[in-house]
C-alpha cells in the first residue's frame, strides 16, 4: 500500500521497478550525490534512473531469482514424478502431472507432424514454466515486496513474466531453435523461402527478402511481447486496485471486490497465456520443419 510519504504514482513506479544489479558508467551522479569513479561501478541500482543508466550491463536480480526458482520447482516436481514413474495405478500429484503431460503431448501431436524428440519436452517446459511465472501474479502485490523491504531489499517484482527480458529471453531461445531447424531441415531451401517467396522472380528478391525477414522477426516478438503485454497489464491492474485501498476506508470494500474479481479472471488469463505461448512455440517450430 502507498505509504504516508508516497504518492500513488510513486507507489506504482516503485512496484514496476526491478531489483537491478549492474554497472554504472563513470561520472554518473548517484542518488546520494556521490559520483561514480572511473571505470564504473557494479552496484545495486537505486531507482529507475540508475537502472536505465546501467544500460545493457545490468541484471534484474528479482526476475532471475524468481524465474530460475520456479524453473527449478518445475524440474524438481516433474523429476520426482518421473523417478517414481511406473505403469501401476497413479494417484495424487502423479495423476495431475500426467494429465498435464498428456495434454501437452496431444497438443504437440495435433500441431507438430515431424519427428523431433525436443519439441514435446520443450513445449512442456514452456507451458509449465510460463504458467508458474504467471501464477506469481495471483500473490497479493504488496505481500512479498513489503516483507522483503523489512530485510532491506528496496525493489522487488515477483512476476518474472512482467519483465520483457524474461519473455523475450524465451522467445529468442525459440527463435534460435526456429532458425536452427529451418537451416537443418530445409538447407538451401530456407534461403529460397526467404528470397523467392511470395513473388517467384529474381527481380523481386529484395522485396521478398524484406517481407520475409519482417515476417520471420515478427514471430519471436509476437511470442515474447504478447506474454509480456498481457502479464504486465494484469499486474498493472492489480497494482491500481491495491492503490485504491489507500484512497480511503470507503474504497476498501469495492477495492476488495475488484481484487477478487480480477484475480478470478486472471486465473483464466495466466493459463491461457501459458497455453498460447506453448502452442505458438510448437507452431513456429512446426513451420520451421515444413518444406513448402
Amino acid at each position: 500500500m502507498a505509504g504516508e510519504n508516497q504518492t500513488v504514482s510513486e507507489y506504482i513506479v516503485h512496484h514496476l521497478t526491478n531489483l537491478t544489479f549492474g554497472k554504472l558508467p563513470a561520472g554518473f551522479e548517484r542518488y546520494d550525490g556521490s559520483i561514480v569513479a572511473d571505470g564504473g561501478a557494479w552496484v545495486m541500482a537505486h531507482g529507475g534512473d540508475e537502472a536505465s543508466a546501467m544500460g545493457f550491463s545490468a541484471i534484474h536480480v528479482d526476475s532471475m531469482i524468481w524465474s530460475i526458482g520456479l524453473g527449478i520447482l518445475f524440474c524438481w516436481l516433474f523429476r520426482k514424478v518421473a523417478r517414481n514413474a511406473e505403469s501401476g495405478v497413479p494417484s495424487g500429484i502423479v495423476n495431475a502431472l500426467e494429465m498435464i503431460i498428456e495434454f501437452v503431448d496431444n497438443t504437440v501431436r495435433d500441431t507438430f507432424h515431424g519427428r523431433n524428440p525436443l519439441i514435446a519436452p520443450l513445449a512442456l517446459t514452456v507451458f509449465v514454466w510460463v504458467f508458474l511465472m504467471n501464477l506469481m501474479d495471483l500473490i497479493p502485490v504488496d505481500l512479498i515486496p513489503s516483507l522483503l523491504t523489512l530485510f532491506g531489499v528496496e525493489y522487488q517484482k515477483i512476476v518474472p513474466s512482467t519483465d520483457p527480458n524474461i519473455t523475450m529471453g524465451m522467445a529468442v531461445g525459440v527463435f534460435i531453435l526456429m532458425l536452427y531447424y529451418s537451416v537443418k531441415v530445409k538447407g538451401f531451401g530456407f534461403v529460397k523461402e526467404l528470397t523467392l517467396n511470395p513473388f517467384n522472380h529474381w527481380l523481386f528478391i529484395p522485396i521478398n527478402l524484406f517481407m520475409e525477414v519482417v515476417g520471420l522477426l515478427a514471430k519471436p516478438f509476437s511470442l515474447g511481447l504478447r506474454l509480456f503485454g498481457n502479464m504486465y497489464a494484469g499486474e498493472m491492474i492489480f497494482i491500481l486496485i491495491a492503490a485504491l485501498f489507500s484512497a480511503g476506508v470507503a474504497w476498501m470494500v469495492p477495492a476488495g471486490l475488484l481484487q477478487i474479481g480480477w484475480a478470478i479472471f486472471h486465473i483464466l488469463v495466466i493459463t491461457l497465456q501459458a497455453f498460447i505461448f506453448m502452442v505458438l512455440t510448437i507452431v513456429y517450430l512446426s513451420m520451421a520443419h515444413e518444406d513448402h
Binding site: 534484474h60 517446459t125 527480458n165
Partner: peptide, 19 residues
C-alpha cells in the same frame, strides 16, 4: 523496462531447463 543481461540469463536458464 530495460533490455539487459537478464535476457541472456533467461535464455541460458531456458536452455538448461529444456535440456
Amino acid at each position: 523496462m530495460n533490455i539487459n543481461l537478464t535476457l541472456i540469463g533467461q535464455m541460458i536458464a531456458f536452455v538448461c531447463f529444456v535440456l
